[in-house]
């Protein structure tokens, strides 16, 4: 008797839990995918379809909006600026962030906990708070409206991630590997280049690309600190404000896609460094 009740109840709760689980997964996926889907549909639609309702499920593959952007004056320069700034951000945040991550992972020093906290705290202040005084300072020093100046700001934004990601990368390399290298004839430096570096290189690449994406997506500082040398985000923000709807969609699409592709390419490492098992 008691067996029968247990049999009846147990699968039931399990099934409910399962439906709930599936529903949550579907909801979360839709949360991310639906906006991107509409972006895609509207980008590949003619201006008339963009403004009509309901939408077709399949895009029309009208490349009118995208061709418009390809021929738009200043577009390529802005794209080039974006790439330059993002590349500089990538290099600087790794060059500064990785040694900090190594120090955090390998050495005990006073104030270590506070240092980690402060790194996180830099993300607690809204960018406008930072950008306006910076704009004034940049104008005084002549750094305003330069790729390097903007890259400096973006590096500031990317460094907390670079430090914490490389910290967890280095922590994942057992100290014994380095010690073994020392006993086998390495100095601290050669042990690093011959043993640690090859092991973390994929992770470093991933965190570099992450920094790249942070810079690529950043719009506020870019809009405030550049005028002539606008990056793509700032350029589109400025020009799309008064554009028709279908061009706004196409502009958004151009911005989102490269970031998506980059993140997709390094997803394995991002999962790994955020402590989620990926195997």
């Amino acid at each position: 008797m008691s067996d029968a009740t247990a049999d009846a109840v147990a699968p039931d709760t399990r099934a409910t839990g399962r439906y709930l689980y599936i529903a949550s997964v579907v909801f979360l996926c839709a949360w991310v995918i639906v906006p991107i889907y509409f972006l895609l549909i509207n980008t590949l639609s003619s201006p008339e379809t963009v403004n009509s309702f309901p939408k077709p499920f399949w895009p029309e593959f009208d490349l009118g909006s995208l061709t418009f952007f390809a021929g738009f004056a200043g577009m390529l320069t802005a794209l080039k600026n974006s790439v330059i700034v993002a590349a500089m951000t990538m290099v600087m945040s790794i060059l500064i962030g990785a040694p900090a991550g190594y120090a955090l992972s390998r050495f005990e020093f006073p104030g270590k906990g506070l240092f980690r906290l402060l790194i996180l705290l830099t993300r607690a202040f809204p960018l406008p708070l930072l950008a306006l005084p910076l704009a004034v300072m940049f104008i005084q020093t002549g750094l305003d409206d330069t790729a390097f100046g903007l890259a400096l700001v973006h590096t500031t934004l990317a460094i907390p991630f670079a430090v914490l990601i490389t910290f967890s990368l280095f922590s994942g390399i057992p100290m014994e590997l380095e010690e073994a290298a020392w006993t086998l004839g390495c100095t601290r430096l050669t042990a690093f280049t011959k043993v640690v570096l090859p092991l973390i290189l994929p992770g470093i690449t991933a965190s570099a690309i992450f920094a790249f994406v942070i810079s690529w997506n950043e719009v506020f500082a870019a809009a405030v600190l550049t005028i002539e040398n606008r990056t793509l985000t700032a350029f589109l923000l400025q020009n799309l404000d008064t554009s028709p709807l279908h061009l706004k969609f196409a502009g958004g699409f151009i911005l989102v896609v490269p970031a998506l592709i980059f993140i997709f390419a390094v997803r394995k490492y991002l999962f790994a460094m955020w402590g989620i098992a990926n195997r």
Binding site: L177, E179, A180, W182, T183
Partner: peptide
């Protein structure tokens, strides 16, 4: 430094270089 001591060492967790 360790490399100049004429020693070599075997570690508990082996420390075989994975790459």
């Amino acid at each position: 430094s360790p490399k100049d001591r004429g020693i070599s060492m075997v570690f508990q967790n082996y420390a075989v270089f994975p790459h």
